[in-house]
Design a protein around this nucleic acid. Structure first.
Lengths: 130, 130
DNA sequence: CGGTATCCGCGGGGATACTG
DNA sequence: CAGTATCCCCGCGGATACCG
């Protein structure tokens, strides 16, 4: 299904603005990585932090809170000692996982090409400077 | 002076870190919207600005520059008066368009559900406060 | 029209310390 | 273990002005 994309689009497309706002959230790097990590199975708090790597504890909390507020992730507390908390994708989140995984997969598969392209571009820039 | 001296955690997945860095770019809201607008056809500079709506001119420039550096977008200048510049997806960019469009489409289709979930969550939060 | 240059506020997000 | 609270820096991105 294609986007609206009408030729004679006058002012601001309201749908576009809404989509933009949502994309600002789920397009976030931490959010995408988190969903990726939860795609196959639920994970515990520090497990997520470790798997993602390079994320601060606060960002794990914030990201999960936001995903909870969007009804994408469920927080499940096991009343054990020490306490265990599991986060898993639910309805909205699990359906979002598909496109997100496709994106993440695409990046993985094209890592080399992207770096190569950047190197090319940097090289071209150098010649201009001289 | 303070050398970064990154943690260099053994548990940190290097691929995950690279993917993260790339996602930080293409996951950006303006980047996703731009690619979405270019998915079906090339667009001119101000046309893009108008279609996206709510984006500053500078961000259009920056986003397109970044996409050029990644070899995703080609800049084509028509030597007319007044000058016309067209931006279109090429190799890497056009292959990226597929997963990006899927994400954008998902958001469009689930706009209502997301807002409903947020309303639910806000409602629940209110009851806790009382 | 299609940019570039400059200023600047605000909030994203890391680091650290503390709690249940 | 799983958070919350606080501080604080830096860079994202808007606004404005100017150029080819």
């Amino acid at each position: 299904m294609p986007m609206p994309a009408p030729p004679n689009n006058p002012g601001t497309n309201p749908d576009c603005r809404k989509v933009d706002a949502i994309l600002g959230h789920i397009g976030d790097e931490w959010t995408i990585l988190t969903i990726t990590m939860l795609a196959d199975q639920p994970r515990r708090f520090n497990e997520l932090k470790r798997l993602i790597g390079g994320i601060s504890q606060q960002m794990v909390t914030r990201t999960l809170k936001a995903l909870e507020a969007d009804g994408m992730v469920a927080r499940k507390v096991h009343p054990t000692v020490p306490p265990q908390v599991e986060y898993g994708l639910i309805d909205l989140g699990s359906s979002l996982a598909a496109p997100v995984m496709q994106l993440a997969t695409w990046v993985l598969e094209h890592l080399g090409e992207i770096e190569a392209q950047r190197a090319l571009h940097d090289e071209a820039a150098k010649h201009v400077r001289r």
